[in-house]
Design a protein around this nucleic acid. Sequence first.
DNA 1: TCAATCAGGACCAAGTCGGTCCTCTTTGGC
DNA 2: GCCAAAGAGGACCGACTTGGTCCTGATTGA
Lengths: 157, 157
Amino acid sequence: MIRLTKQTDYGIVLMSQIAASHGAQFTAPELAQETHLPLPMVSKILKALTRAGLLVSQRGAKGGYALAYAPAEISVATIIAALEGPIAITECVEESEEACSYEATCRVRSNWQRINQAVSGALAGISLEEMAEPWKTRSQVPVALRPPAPRPPAPRP
Amino acid sequence: MIRLTKQTDYGIVLMSQIAASHGAQFTAPELAQETHLPLPMVSKILKALTRAGLLVSQRGAKGGYALAYAPAEISVATIIAALEGPIAITECVEESEEACSYEATCRVRSNWQRINQAVSGALAGISLEEMAEPWKTRSQVPVALRPPAPRPPAPRP
DNA sequence: TCAATCAGGACCAAGTCGGTCCTCTTTGGC
DNA sequence: GCCAAAGAGGACCGACTTGGTCCTGATTGA
């Protein structure tokens, strides 16, 4: 299914939590408590985000994690990419030019790129800053659109 | 990762193949041959698409599958939904109101809806008709947009 | 020196996916 | 009326991915 892993899900929650207190530094246990997520998981994810360069860490006593960039500069797409690699809706859009054997005959190949761009464009259009505050308060138009989506065929009797 | 299952991937390929020959009827073996996908898989997927109402099937000798709607009326989102259920980027946007236990404290809950809408909007904006022909030939603007996506932070040294 | 923190793996149970196969039912042609 | 071609519907299994835990270091401030 088109679904983020829980790790990424949690990662966005954590980043949002940090973003909500501008520039503050949090320890893993603090974040685990505030988000009600299991500490080992939180710790694991924070490490990954640090390795990816989205967080900066301070070791030792009085240590913790803080954002490496302003919330407005970090998009949801970036966080996803940090935790699970480049967004690739399908194997055949992955950069690894591992030549899918059907490439020559596959008529949709080029269109996968397009779908992928649509999705990652949508995700790149949402910043951490926006994630940190409830949606309601924002007067926003939805990000991706095109006239009324083709009405989904009703389930046949 | 944000990735479609192969079943869905193949499903879109198959639907596109059928769409490319307007209204024609194909047998599973024919489609397997044209797309170079394993027959049992093809068969399985066609059955699922039929059950979902996107294809109509004709049993018996001279049987086969054909589209239930015009290619322009079927969106990629519809196909995905048919094969793997409603698009839900995260557990907490699933309709089943299975009350995630953190709901009260989760600050991003409402924003997941938004991400989900962005993604499904992007997918709903691409029709099967477009998938059936190579991208190059179309003079299209990308589907999902918003001004220049916030530049992704460069990987830190 | 010690306790608090982060870093980096190893490890495992459970679930999901990709793929195959088998047995029915339906239908058209001879 | 019989047979072959085709779809319908499952059962089944191996392999991989995920979610989650735990352990052992390395740093650093008090």
